[in-house]
């Protein structure tokens, strides 16, 4: 039952985040979605990553959003959609239904319920999986962060650099 409530809560928050016209509030709904997702993850058995999601997804990302919105100004946006809403609806619902129809039959397999019975005695392995088995992924995260930081520096910092240069020249 609690699982159901979490699921419903996640979707409700997500919908509210999308429907909200004030940017800041929308970002906060996103944070709440993220927090609930992290809770769901915990329920599924992924305790470690749930913490990360809570801190990064709900925390850091929200901070970034708030930061960006502060620079931009918390404008409230026109709710009129740039393309016909029914079209978006039909495309999304059709895609979702198709995917569900293709995926769900394979979800009812016996082995999954059996798997769910055994609770997480596997805890503690996460570290070794992350740092040993999938070390390439982890190393690549560094590359990702590096490229991302360079991109942000280039995009945000460049402006100031130019201004300061102009100031120097002026």
């Amino acid at each position: 039952m609690i699982n159901f409530l979490i699921g419903a809560g996640i979707l409700a928050c997500a919908i509210l985040a999308v429907r909200e016209n004030r940017l800041l509030v929308s970002a906060l709904w996103l944070a709440l979605t993220s927090a609930l997702v992290s809770f769901l993850m915990y329920r599924v058995g992924a305790a470690e990553v749930a913490v990360v999601e809570l801190s990064v997804g709900a925390g850091l990302v929200t901070v970034l959003f708030v930061f960006a919105i502060n620079i931009i100004g918390n404008e409230s946006v026109a709710s009129q959609a740039p393309l016909p809403r029914p079209l978006a609806w039909v495309a999304i619902v059709l895609g979702g239904l198709l995917l569900a129809w293709m995926i769900l039959p394979s979800m009812q397999l016996e082995r999954f319920t059996a798997v769910l019975e055994q609770q997480g005695e596997l805890a503690g392995l996460f570290r070794s999986v992350l740092w040993t088995d999938r070390s390439v992924d982890s190393l690549l995260q560094v590359v990702l962060i590096f490229s991302g930081v360079l991109a942000v520096l280039g995009l945000i910092g460049g402006e100031e650099g130019l201004e300061s240069k102009e100031e120097k020249q002026g």
């Binding site: 990553v49 997804g57 392995l125 070794s128 999938r134 942000v152």
Partner: peptide
């Protein structure tokens, strides 16, 4: 579950970076 967590962690990092950019 740990492999799943590990993948999810990578996705969090990658997509946070994308969001930041």
């Amino acid at each position: 579950v740990d492999v799943g967590q590990s993948l999810a962690l990578t996705v969090i990092v990658a997509d946070t970076i994308v969001a930041v950019v």
